[in-house]
Design a protein around this nucleic acid. Structure first.
Length: 375
RNA sequence: GCCGCGUUGGUCAAGGGGUUAAGACGCAUCCCUUUCACGGAUGAAUCACGGGUUCGAUUCCCGUACGCGGUACCA
């Protein structure tokens, strides 16, 4: 296998807090796919949001992956040839591409202040359109390089006026792509807003960073949660403008893992009566501790196993799988497209099954570990 | 509101034009067991709704309803 078609996947968390079920399952599916195809699993830290950065969160992510046995082949701790692996350290790279987009007419400078944006949203808000977007319908009424003269733009930039760079979404084009799980998905570009690509603090937003880094890091398959599906057209267009659709990774959007009453949220971690995080997480601000599956007494083998079966199965009646078996049997085509409600009773059954497989010696060890963790 | 993705028992789900619609978790009853586990048997429970296509739709198509996601200078 040459380097051009080598399978390379990535998990790209932002270090903002505990790593929950859905996140670990995303890691798992990425890992399984990479290992099945003899490829690389990369961990990229997406720390482009200064405001949400949480100290310790990055280390915590590594701890969780280690406990799960899903260690990355390349990361900030194990650099490959495509570093740095932390986006804040790649800051300069993104601006070049944003400027390139402007030069080609696919993006523009926008000088609107947060207050002006609020005002726009207030002004255009109606019952039919409760959440107005910065899109082709309003962009010509805003303060940007599309409405200002070249001189004015130059002057504003020279005088250090804060600005962002926005993508200029084309009007009435259909953008479609083939999702490995859902098949063809398409969008009308008129209904997508002019997303910010480069922020006023010169950091890229996710939209720009994910495309640039996936390209630079030679990612072959881009797998992520379904919450990203609505912004896929932005990413597809960026690929088209910057690197060419033929270079674009294959996409797959995983179904969401739901809680008892819908969305499984980090904030409700304590309310469900079962863990949502892989490992204990303590909120630095409130000091609130959220118990993890590890500390609750789950074996990592069981945790991996139960996560794998949430949204995937091999078509047989087998439910207990070791990681080796998962790697062997996994296929993206058998991942469900519908969300799955998390069932703690079933999760405990998986743990039970794995505990039964332990011999007396290792059981004693694990029990002692679990008890010590609680003291 | 708009856009997107979904919809097989309470939950995870197999199946995919003709089936008694698998299996697992949980639940119930029973058996095994001095106890706790383990194990075994049986049972209740499912194709969201309405139109098409078809000799025949749970399966294909279109609507509707419902759920979830998105609609930020967050990821």
């Amino acid at each position: 296998m040459n380097t051009e078609n080598r399978v390379r996947v990535r998990f790209a968390p932002s270090p903002t807090g505990g790593l929950h079920l859905g996140g670990v399952r995303t890691v798992l599916f990425n890992y399984l796919y990479a290992k099945k195809h003899g490829g690389d699993f990369i961990l990229r830290i997406e720390d482009t949001d200064q405001a949400r950065f949480v100290p310790g969160a990055e280390e915590y992510i590594f701890d969780c992956l280690k406990w799960c046995g899903l260690n990355p082949d390349e990361s900030v701790r194990n650099e490959g040839h495509y570093g740095p692996y932390r986006q804040s350290e790649r800051k300069e790279k993104y601006r070049l591409y944003a400027e390139e987009l402007i030069a080609e007419g696919h993006a523009y400078y926008a000088f609107d202040t947060p207050e002006e944006l609020d005002e726009m949203r207030r002004k255009y808000k109606t019952d039919e359109n409760p959440q107005p977007q910065y899109d082709h319908k309003v962009r010509m009424r805003m303060k940007n390089s599309l409405t200002l003269s070249g001189e004015d733009v130059h002057e504003l930039i020279r005088s250090n006026t804060p600005y962002v760079i926005r993508i200029k979404m084309p009007e009435n084009e259909t953008v479609s792509f083939n999702d490995m799980i859902r098949g063809e998905v398409s969008f009308n570009t008129s209904l997508v807003d002019d997303k910010v690509l480069l922020k006023a603090d010169e950091m890229p937003t996710y939209h720009l960073a994910v495309v640039v880094d996936d390209h630079l890091m030679k990612i072959s398959h881009a797998f992520r949660g379904e919450e990203w599906l609505p912004s896929a057209p932005v990413h597809i267009l960026l690929w088209k403008y910057l690197f060419g659709l033929d270079k674009m990774p294959k996409w797959a959007h995983f179904p969401l893992i739901l809680g008892p009453n819908g969305k499984l949220s980090k904030r409700d971690g304590l309310k469900y009566g079962f863990p949502v995080f892989a490992m204990n997480w303590t909120d630095a601000k409130t000091g609130e501790l959220t118990e993890g599956f590890k500390e609750k007494g789950f074996l990592p083998e069981a945790f991996i196993n139960l996560l794998a079966l949430l949204g995937w199965n091999d078509g047989t009646e087998q439910e207990v799988f070791s990681i080796e078996e998962l790697i062997h049997e996994f296929s993206m085509g058998r991942v469900h497209s519908a969300g799955a409600k998390f069932d703690y009773e079933k999760a405990k059954w998986f743990n039970h099954e794995w505990i039964k497989k332990l011999d007396a010696g290792s059981l004693k060890e694990r029990v002692l570990e679990a008890l010590e963790a609680k003291m």
